[in-house]
């Protein structure tokens, strides 16, 4: 046993008929062996999905807003990255399977580092996630897929608690891809993930030593060892904005692309501000 295809089903969490039907209803391009060309395997996803569903429904009690206005066809999902570990990606991916109609598969552009790691890289690719390169994104958009990008990248996800809900600098690549492939951008904001692992700081020397993108120091990490990895059960709220369409030359100067990116960033910031204001508490 050396691959996630060999994993046994999650104990006590059977795959519900509904969840299975939802995953089955998503169009795929599988080979006769059951994998798509990026290595996505619906069979592995079905094994892991009940766990994601449990966390989504019972642990983080995710609430979505505006999910009914998601467009059809290919588009880019652009949102804030937070929470030290990329659980926000999992929330949005699970939301589009469980709560969107029709259900969609989200292909996230993952930090390249992850694909060099044993188990992690293989797992990500089996559940449909991709190495974050422009070519991969182009290819998937061309196939009509939903591609998710966190333009803040590793800097955004590893920011300390005191900077919560302050967006860090956005990369420009996603806007060029949207212009080039003429696909709409759907902004989203995740509220609640900032408080899952409240980090005092990012221990950069330790991260360098371990060759990880970051090393968060929280009240529990690394003091409690693996137990410290358990996130606080905050309530997660995901706000989906209306699709934004941009026109222009994908090879424009950074300045011109940056102005367009700023519009997306403002849309996300507005949703975050609304979410933080509207919620009555962090945990419920």
């Amino acid at each position: 046993m050396w691959t996630s295809s060999d994993l046994p089903p999650i104990p006590f969490l059977p795959l519900s008929k509904e969840l299975e039907a939802r995953i089955d209803s998503i169009p795929t391009r599988l080979s006769e062996f059951g994998y798509d060309e990026f290595g996505y395997s619906p069979a592995v996803l079905k094994k892991m999905a009940p766990l994601a569903e449990w966390f989504y429904r019972n642990y983080f009690r995710v609430e979505t807003f505006g999910i009914e206005q998601l467009p059809e066809g290919p588009y880019l999902l652009i949102g804030n990255h937070s929470g030290q570990f990329p659980l926000d990606g999992m929330f949005v991916g699970t939301a589009l399977i469980l709560d969107a109609n029709p259900p969609r598969m989200v292909r996230a552009m993952v930090e390249r580092w992850a694909f060099g790691m044993p188990l992690i890289g293989e797992f990500f690719s089996r559940v449909g996630q991709i190495v974050g390169t422009p070519e991969n994104c182009r290819r998937l958009l061309g196939q009509g897929e939903v591609v998710m990008v966190f333009p803040e990248g590793a800097v955004g996800i590893s920011k300390p608690y005191k900077n919560r809900y302050k967006l860090t600098e956005f990369g420009l690549g996603f806007m060029r891809l949207a212009l080039e492939n003429r696909v709409p951008i759907v902004p989203f904001g995740v509220v609640g993930a900032e408080e899952m692992y409240p980090a005092f700081t990012n221990a950069v020397p330790l991260a360098k030593l371990l060759k990880t993108p970051s090393f968060p120091i929280t009240p529990t990490l690394p003091w409690l060892g693996p137990l410290g990895l358990i996130p606080l059960p905050t309530r997660i709220r995901i706000y989906f904005g209306a699709a934004m369409r941009f026109e222009g030359d994908p090879d424009d100067d950074d300045g011109i692309i940056g102005q367009k990116v700023l519009k997306v960033k403002e849309a996300i910031a507005a949703m975050l501000a609304r979410g933080v204001k509207e919620r009555e508490a962090v945990f419920w």
Binding site: R112, F115, G116, V131, P134, E135, R139
Partner: peptide
């Protein structure tokens, strides 16, 4: 390489 696109041109 782990950084390779799935399909290199």
């Amino acid at each position: 390489s782990p950084e390779n696109s799935a399909f290199l041109t």
